[in-house]
């Protein structure tokens, strides 16, 4: 367990950074980067925890990470496509301008 602590702390930090990015940044691309950071926090958690089982590296954890990276990539790709379209409509990457849909 003790060997894990640095990893877990990093995961926690990455979570905070990712969420902070999402909530505080105005630029849409920066928000997508924040999303990536969040995903990577979870992936790091997997890798860290796969190290600690039974003295050898558990392949299950690592394969999950591979799959997750692929899926996250797809999500980000779609997100970038939307950012592109949004730029065409709004002329800006500032997410605060995307407030035309009211409550």
């Amino acid at each position: 367990m003790n060997a894990l602590i640095p990893y877990l702390v990093s995961v926690f930090l990455l979570l905070l950074i990712g969420l902070g990015c999402l909530m505080m940044k105005r630029d849409m691309i920066r928000m997508l980067i924040g999303l990536e950071i969040l995903f990577n926090a979870a992936n790091l958690n997997f890798v860290a925890l796969s190290l600690s089982r039974a003295g050898f590296v558990d392949p299950l954890g690592q394969s999950i990470v591979m799959m997750a990276i692929v899926l996250d990539g797809c999500v980000i790709a779609v997100g970038l496509a939307m950012v592109l379209n949004a730029y065409k409509h709004y002329g800006t990457l500032d997410v605060r301008k995307l407030r035309r849909l009211r409550w």
Binding site: L35, L38, A41, A42, N45, L49, G61, A68, V75
Partner: peptide
């Protein structure tokens, strides 16, 4: 996607 990230976290 944020939700999915948390789901991934819970899986881990």
């Amino acid at each position: 996607a944020t939700g999915s990230a948390f789901l991934l976290l819970s899986m881990s």
